[in-house]
Nucleic acid binder design. Structure first.
Lengths: 94, 94
DNA sequence: CGGTATCCAAAGTGATACTG
DNA sequence: CAGTATCACTTTGGATACCG
């Protein structure tokens, strides 16, 4: 899946995975570099790919929550060691 | 590292990891989608990041071999489950 | 063979406006 | 709040050709 190579995808999967269920704004706050529109697009792609599920609540104010699907969880599990190592390695060089 | 999110990076790491030492052309043949220039750029970035090492031989015809550094090996190990799972999942849907 | 140089298309960004 | 839409702009990536 070329989707994995797209910007922010791994990060999003991890963020959602860690939180369990997350709202749009929260994901956004963890990705300062990503624009609203890009994040929106990525999330849609992830939902289409069956890795993330979106739950929309008809409330005021509106609330939308994202969480990983079973496949998403599986991916997150496998992704964890990678992201962890990368994070550690980044600290070293700073 | 945002580098991981760049196109082909994970694939390249895996390809180099599997082969041990690889020549430019061989990597290219495993990535039909990537253009020469992109591959060249990616390899340079990977070398700069200390994940891949380049060995240039002053022969005719010229030969250049790439192989993973210790860090690259570590990354490849952690990346393996991810790539494996993604590959299986792709097969399912085809 | 293994690239770099060049030029062009596509993806992503930022800001802002608008909707349910 | 959680987006979608738009537009101008920057960054990436692709195609091709040429060089050592």
């Amino acid at each position: 899946m070329g989707l994995l190579g797209r910007k922010y995808v791994m990060e999003i999967v991890c963020i959602v995975g860690v939180h369990g269920t997350v709202r749009f704004g929260e994901i956004e706050s963890h990705l300062p570099g990503a624009s609203t529109s890009t994040l929106s697009t990525r999330l849609e792609e992830l939902v289409d790919a069956g890795l993330v599920e979106r739950e929309r609540y008809a409330e005021i104010p509106p609330r939308v929550e994202y969480e990983l699907s079973a496949d998403g969880e599986e991916l997150a599990t496998r992704l964890e060691p990678v992201v962890e190592w990368v994070a550690e390695r980044e600290e070293m060089s700073t």
